[in-house]
């Protein structure tokens, strides 16, 4: 494992912890898209079907379990927690996320490494992760104001993407048979979706002002 991959995993983990902390500390999930969180939980569950069949390292297995548990915990809080669920912006979070799921499933049935249950779901999870942020970005766009923690959450998610791309470049240069088409193309799509958000995040940081997205 190289330093970029590790930095990517850590920023990914931090983004999830920032979100959990925000929900726990403020007892509010205002500004957070439940649909994006449900998609991420689905991404982790379908990608880590190999948890019991292919052992890679203790680090990998532990992180997989942590990602499944933390993403499920966020969804649970937003749907079921007595106080937290009251602050959910249901009226603003109207993205048709089922279409994303169906589209990714069809794509995974067409483009995959091998036509097996695990491989198809692995490809599905990669495609779904690429677009899972869309409901969140639409929600931020609609609400206009972005509170600091939500901004940081998306910032760390974006940082995770950037580090993973560096990781793939590094692996491509150092490993002889590194194949990455499905991951890399999906990863580039995913990172491109953040570019717009990052631009406004940078502007607000430079001006030391509150993050505002144009409507």
């Amino acid at each position: 494992m190289n330093i970029f991959r590790f930095a990517g995993d850590m920023t990914h983990l931090i983004s999830i912890l920032v979100l959990l902390l925000k929900i726990y500390a403020t007892k509010s999930c205002a500004g957070i898209s439940l649909k994006t969180q449900e998609l991420y939980a689905l991404v982790f569950v379908t990608r880590y079907l190999d948890l019991f069949t292919d052992f890679i390292s203790v680090y990998n297995s532990v992180m997989k379990v942590v990602f499944i548990l933390t993403s499920s915990a966020i969804v649970w809080c937003m749907r079921r927690h007595r106080i937290v669920k009251r602050s959910y912006d249901q009226a603003l979070d109207t993205f048709r996320h089922l279409f994303l799921v169906l589209g990714c499933l069809v794509l995974a049935l067409i483009v995959h490494d091998k036509f097996t249950f695990q491989e198809v779901f692995w490809a599905f999870s990669i495609y779904l992760e690429a677009v899972a942020i869309l409901p969140q970005l639409v929600l931020l766009q609609r609400s206009g104001n972005v509170d600091n923690l939500t901004g940081q959450y998306v910032f760390f998610l974006g940082a995770y993407r950037a580090f993973y791309i560096l990781n793939w470049i590094y692996r491509y240069l150092t490993e002889q048979h590194f194949r990455l088409w499905i991951s890399c193309i999906s990863g580039l799509v995913q990172t491109a979706l953040y570019a717009d958000f990052f631009y406004y995040y940078y502007i607000s940081w430079k001006n030391n002002s509150k993050l505002q997205l144009p409507s």
């Binding site: 995993d9 190999d50 292919d54 692996r171 048979h177 194949r179 890399c184």
Partner: peptide, 10 residues
């Protein structure tokens, strides 16, 4: 198990 692809990533 997957030394040549990105399936050893998270």
């Amino acid at each position: 198990a997957f030394p040549s692809s990105s399936k050893d990533e998270l």
